[in-house]
Each structure stands twice: as structure tokens, then as C-alpha cells.
């Protein structure tokens, strides 16, 4: 049979209600399939093209600009209720190419491909000269802060579960305060905090109804005086068990 190239269905606008409806479905799909970091929200529809689909419906190609929210992917809060991260916190944006089909008002995502990157240092410096620039996730100070914070969190209450690090998701140096700030996700193990003290190597990620994810914010301030102790602070939120929710990729990549 003769191959007929797809014809452009019509010339849609990026802010057309139909394009927006498709973009919302695409962003929900992207959030559902996130493997790292934070849930995102739609910032701008860059491009859209519709192609005729036989026998009916259409194929939609979208280019979306998304921005990071403050909800880590382990946070059960729906993405639409999450707060978009402020630009002053060195926001991270993502460029996503999405292919989807629409039939009778129903959308189905076929493929997404996203690339995320922080606001460029130059632009960030211009828009917020005194703000703290994001550090690399493997920055030694960030990593040390996270490990010290998790140790402290596990030690704070010997009656609760013992937690392991799932991933470091953000970190930056606090230049004026001579310190470090970091955010990270955690998961509980099958050990109590007391048991983990002596047999940490035997502790594995909890399973079934006992599985709980958490998200922590930690800061470390180096003391100005030589003889004074440095100051650590850590706050973690542990979420209720979410039936059917697994983050195997995070567990396999970072914990095991």
C-alpha cells in the first residue's frame, strides 16, 4: 500500500482548552511515572501539533515546559495540591516531549521524554543575587549533612522504626550562615531503631503494609567559635502506608 504521510489535522493554539486538557493529562502521566526528585506542574505549553488518526481521533505532539514543586515523589499529596518551588530557591525546570492520542475526548499518553535542569547559574544570579545556588547531589558537604541528619533522626527516638536513605533530592550551601541545607527521602526497614544499633547490616527495606516512605529537610550550621559545637537540625515527615504504591527503582538504585 502506498504510504501516506500524516496530514496536519488543524493548527491549534497552545492555550486552546483542548490543548490544555491534553497537557493536564500529560503532566499527570509524567508525575505518575517519575523516577527521581519532585512532582512537577505545567509552566507553559511550548508547541503543539495535531495529526489525523485513522479511522478516527487524532495524534497530538506536545512540547511542555514544567517546573518542580516542593512535593517529593514519595509524598502522597496530589500534584495539583503541591506548591511550585519559588524561583529564589533555584528552581528546576523540565522540557518534555509528549506523544498522545485523543479519541472522543479521551486522551492516552503514548510516550514522554523529559529533560530537567536547574535555572542557569547566570540567570539565577541575575534574578536573585543573594540566593543560594543549588549544589550537586553528590557534593561532599551535602552528602555528609544528609548522613549526619539521618543518623540523628534515627537516634532521636529509639522506639520507632529504623530508616534508610532513599535519595538525596536537593542541597545547597548556606554561604552567609556557613552551613548546608539538604532535602532527602527515606524508607523504613524491618528493624527497630534499637535492633539497628547492633545489626544495621541485617536491616532491609520493609515490605507489605509495613512500608512507609518519608521526606526530610536538614540543615547544618558551622559554629563561628572554635570551641562551640556545630548545629544540626532535621525534620522528617513519615507518610502513612500507601497501598499499591511502590518505588522499586529508588529502592534498587539507592538502598540495595
Amino acid at each position: 500500500a502506498e504510504v501516506v504521510p500524516p496530514t496536519v489535522h488543524k493548527v491549534p493554539g497552545c492555550d486552546d482548552p483542548e490543548t490544555e486538557a491534553a497537557a493536564r493529562v500529560a503532566v499527570a502521566y509524567i508525575n505518575k511515572h517519575l523516577k527521581h526528585g519532585y512532582k512537577v506542574d505545567l509552566n507553559r505549553i511550548e508547541k503543539v501539533r495535531y495529526f489525523e488518526r485513522r479511522p478516527h481521533g487524532k495524534i497530538m505532539d506536545l512540547e511542555l515546559d514544567v517546573v518542580e514543586t516542593t512535593c517529593h515523589l514519595v509524598d502522597p499529596l496530589p500534584a495539583e495540591n503541591c506548591t511550585v518551588r519559588k524561583r529564589e530557591e533555584h528552581a528546576v525546570e523540565g522540557d518534555c516531549d509528549v506523544k498522545m492520542i485523543e479519541v472522543d475526548g479521551h486522551y492516552k499518553v503514548l510516550r514522554t521524554k523529559c529533560h530537567s535542569s536547574p535555572d542557569s547559574d547566570e540567570d539565577f544570579q541575575k534574578s536573585c543575587p543573594n540566593c543560594n545556588r543549588l549544589s550537586r547531589l553528590n557534593d561532599t558537604d551535602v552528602v555528609n549533612t544528609v548522613h549526619a541528619a539521618l543518623k540523628e533522626y534515627n537516634a532521636q527516638n529509639t522506639t520507632h522504626d529504623h530508616y534508610k536513605l532513599l535519595e538525596i533530592s536537593r542541597g545547597h550551601h548556606l554561604h552567609l550562615a556557613r552551613g548546608v541545607y539538604a532535602e532527602f527521602a527515606i524508607v523504613n526497614t524491618n528493624c527497630s531503631a534499637q535492633h539497628a544499633k547492633e545489626h544495621e547490616d541485617d536491616c532491609h527495606v520493609a515490605t507489605g503494609d509495613h512500608l512507609h516512605y518519608g521526606f526530610c529537610k536538614a540543615s547544618f550550621h558551622k559554629s563561628a567559635a572554635e570551641d562551640a559545637a556545630d548545629h544540626h537540625e532535621v525534620h522528617c515527615t513519615v507518610y502513612d502506608h500507601q497501598p499499591g504504591v511502590h518505588h522499586h527503582h529508588l529502592i534498587h538504585e539507592h538502598v540495595e
Binding site: V11, G13, C14, D41, N43, R44, E46
Partner: peptide
Amino acid sequence: PLVKRSILAALPECPGRYRHYDL
């Protein structure tokens, strides 16, 4: 009679608006 059509009317309105900020 021939009527000149506006090109602007046929141009797609993309990219769309920023919902949060311009990065």
C-alpha cells in the same frame, strides 16, 4: 474580487502563557 487574507490570523498561537514564571 481578490481579497488579501491576514497571515496573522492563520498563525498558531504558540508558545502559550507562563503559568508560574519565565525560566
